[in-house]
């Protein structure tokens, strides 16, 4: 099980690094999604997945009746997914705005338009 997870995580990280190193921001988002899922898998593997029984206490008893899965990694992953989701929503909107304002999703083209707006006082800000 761990071997499979480790291989899968490795493949996903490799793919995500490939995507993130490209100069297209849309590719970067996909790379980021892949990477955050790879990290989630890593946390899951670190929690030593051994049984498939959910960590629930049946009605009427005070403790689990049989060995159950470790629930903490799942809680950590859930939190990480929630946060990742919120960040992703934000980054989508930001990149959409960047595309609308700068007219490109190419990071090199963005950097090249650097000159000329070093000093942007609020009074001279363009409004969308």
């Amino acid at each position: 099980m761990e071997t499979v997870l480790a291989l899968l995580t490795g493949t996903m990280v490799a793919g995500s690094v490939f995507l993130m190193l490209g100069k297209n921001l849309v590719r970067f988002i996909f790379g980021l999604m892949l990477a955050s899922n790879a990290v989630n898998l890593l946390i899951f593997a670190a929690g030593r997945p051994d049984t498939s029984r959910p960590p629930l206490i049946p009605q009427g008893s005070l403790q689990p009746v049989a060995a159950v899965a470790n629930s903490l990694p799942q809680a950590l992953i859930l939190t990480a997914i929630v946060i990742g989701f919120a960040l992703l929503a934000f980054i989508f909107i930001l990149f959409l705005r960047a595309y609308q304002q700068l007219g490109t999703v190419d990071t090199e083209a963005m950097t090249n338009s650097e000159s000329g707006n070093q000093d942007t006082a609020p009074s001279e800000r363009p409004r969308p």
């Binding site: 705005r97 960047a98 338009s113 942007t120 363009p126 409004r127």
Partner: peptide
């Protein structure tokens, strides 16, 4: 917040 070009570029 101000949505200027410089801000969005720095933000990215």
């Amino acid at each position: 917040l101000g949505r200027t070009r410089a801000q969005i570029k720095g933000g990215v």
